[in-house]
Amino acid sequence: MEYCKLYSDDAGESRWADVDVALEPRSFAPPAQDIEISDPEPARQMMFLRLRASWDEPIHPTPVRQKLICLAGSVRVTASDGETRDITKGDVWHMEDKHGKGHHTMVTSDVDFEAVIIQHE
């Protein structure tokens, strides 16, 4: 399992990286059988988000370290270094480009983009 991560390098340039998630068999909900699960990550709050079809925002950094899980629609996200990623249903996008040049996001689907945001700080 993996997710895409958008971060800022020391020069303030936003860049993409793919992150592999380590899953280990563990007892998660006894007495159910062990399941493959990752280590927990602390979270501060969770929100639902909707961006209307054709929504297009100016470039900006993320306000906090957070993960987005796409539920419907799609967006194209362009890092300040020019690399783009398309985030579609089921994708997980980890944002931590809190300083520097930021990223540009626009809805590319004909339907609204809907997601869950999990903030870590």
Rank of each mutant, 00 (worst) to 15 (best):
A72Q: 15
V111E: 15
A43N: 02
L71D: 05
Y3E: 03
H99Q: 11
D20S: 13
A32H: 08
I87D: 01
P31N: 03
M46C: 06
L23H: 03
Q66G: 02
K101Y: 07
C70F: 01
Q33W: 00
G102I: 12
A32N: 11
H104P: 05
S80V: 11
L71G: 08
M1E: 05
E83T: 15
T105G: 04
A29D: 05
E83H: 13
S80E: 05
V111Q: 13
L68P: 00
M46A: 08
C4M: 05
D91R: 02
K89P: 02
G102T: 09
R26Y: 02
E2S: 14
E57M: 11
E121Y: 03
V77H: 02
T84K: 05
C70A: 15
G12A: 07
H60Q: 15
V107Q: 11
A17P: 13
E57N: 10
V107L: 08
I118T: 09
I117Q: 04
A17E: 15
K89T: 13
D56P: 14
A79H: 05
E41Y: 06
E83K: 14
T78V: 10
R50H: 03
G100S: 05
A17K: 14
L68K: 00
W16K: 09
R85T: 06
D9H: 03
S74C: 12
Q33D: 09
K101P: 00
T105V: 15
E96M: 13
M46D: 00
D18E: 10
D112P: 14
G73P: 12
A53T: 14
M1G: 10
Q66A: 10
D20L: 07
Q33E: 10
D56E: 15
L6H: 02
M106H: 15
A22P: 11
A43V: 13
K5M: 06
E41H: 03
H99E: 12
H103C: 07
G100R: 01
D9T: 05
S14N: 06
E121V: 08
S80P: 07
W55E: 15
A11R: 09
Y7P: 03
S109M: 07
T108P: 05
K67H: 10
V92W: 02
H99L: 04
V21C: 07
T62G: 04
M106L: 13
R52T: 14
P61L: 11
E114D: 13
H103S: 03
W93R: 00
E96V: 02
G73E: 04
D97S: 07
G100C: 09
C4R: 10
A53Q: 14
D56L: 03
I69E: 00
T88Y: 00
I35D: 01
R65M: 05
T105S: 12
A43D: 01
P63A: 09
R85L: 06
R50D: 07
M106S: 09
G12N: 05
S109N: 06
I117D: 00
D56V: 03
S54N: 15
R44H: 11
D91C: 09
S80R: 04
S38C: 12
H99M: 04
V92N: 00
D81R: 12
F113L: 10
T88Q: 06
I87T: 05
D56A: 09
S80I: 12
